[in-house]
């Protein structure tokens, strides 16, 4: 059985930002040391950040990683003998 890393990563970044005193994308970008466009791309699901950035996000929002990011495996690709 092989596992291929194919699937969809969704995230709760926008929700968490608003919960944290309506933090702006620019403020979050500054805190992470990335550009605002990268935050926008992550929120839109167009870009998956590195583990380093993901763990920094958990620090900033004081929340577990699996609350911030969710993984939905593509069933047709994930389990093949």
């Amino acid at each position: 059985m092989t596992k291929k890393a194919k699937g969809i990563i969704s995230n709760q970044l926008r929700k968490k930002r608003f919960e944290k005193d309506e933090m702006t994308q620019q403020e979050l970008a500054k805190a992470l040391g990335v550009t605002r466009q990268t935050i926008a791309a992550i929120e839109a699901g167009k870009y998956s950040p590195s583990l380093e950035v993901a763990f920094c996000l958990t620090d900033i929002f004081a929340t577990p990683l699996d609350e911030l990011f969710q993984w939905q495996a593509n069933e047709s690709e994930s389990d093949k003998d």
Binding site: G33, V34, T35, T38, E52
Partner: peptide, 11 residues
């Protein structure tokens, strides 16, 4: 006013 020297992992 974004720092123009900032190149992040996505770039």
């Amino acid at each position: 006013d974004e720092d123009i020297s900032l190149v992040d992992e996505r770039d």
